[in-house]
Amino acid sequence: MLHSTVSVLFVCLGNICRFPTAEGMFGDKAKRQGFNVHLDSAGTAGFQNGVAPDKRSQQLAQRRNYALSSLKCRRVSVEDFGKLDYIIAMGKSNVRELKRKSPEEHQHKVKKYCLCLHG
C-alpha cells in the first residue's frame, strides 16, 4: 500500500557526488518499503549544472544496483523551498546558505544531514 507522497530535496555544495547518490539510494529504499516519494538533489553552488553525477559515484551506486545515470546536477532554486516538504543539507555551510536563500515561511524545512557512525 502506498502512502501519501512526500517530497525531499537533498542538497550538498556541487550536487555532483554525495547527494545524487543519496537521492538514488533513498528513492530505491523508499519504493521497496511502499512509500511514494518525490526526490530531487541540488547544490548550493551548482558548479556542474546539467551534468550527470560523477562517474565514480555512478560506478559505486551501480555495484549496489542503484541507477544514477538519469540524474542531472543542478543548483537550488527559490521555487524549491515552496514545492518540497523537506530540504536535507550536507554540512553547516550549506544549511546556512539555504536558510539565507529561503523565504522565512519555509526555513523550517531545512534540516542538516547527520551521518552517525556507531562503532
Rank of each mutant, 00 (worst) to 15 (best):
M1R: 15
M1C: 12
H3M: 10
H3A: 09
T5P: 11
T5S: 14
S7E: 06
S7T: 11
L9F: 01
C12K: 06
N15W: 01
N15S: 05
R18Y: 00
F19Y: 12
A22S: 13
A22Q: 04
E23I: 01
G24P: 01
G24Y: 01
M25F: 12
F26T: 13
F26P: 06
G27P: 03
A30V: 10
R32Q: 14
Q33M: 13
G34T: 11
H38Y: 11
D40R: 06
T44A: 04
A45P: 01
G46F: 00
F47K: 00
Q48C: 03
N49H: 08
N49M: 08
G50Q: 07
G50M: 04
A52T: 12
D54M: 08
S57F: 00
S57I: 05
S57K: 05
S57A: 13
R63C: 11
R63Y: 10
N65C: 08
A67I: 10
S70V: 12
C73T: 11
V78H: 07
G82H: 13
K83W: 06
K83M: 11
Y86P: 03
I88Y: 02
M90P: 07
K92L: 09
R100W: 03
R100L: 04
S102T: 14
S102H: 07
P103V: 12
H106T: 12
Q107L: 04
K109N: 09
V110I: 14
K112S: 14
L115A: 09
C116D: 06
G119E: 14
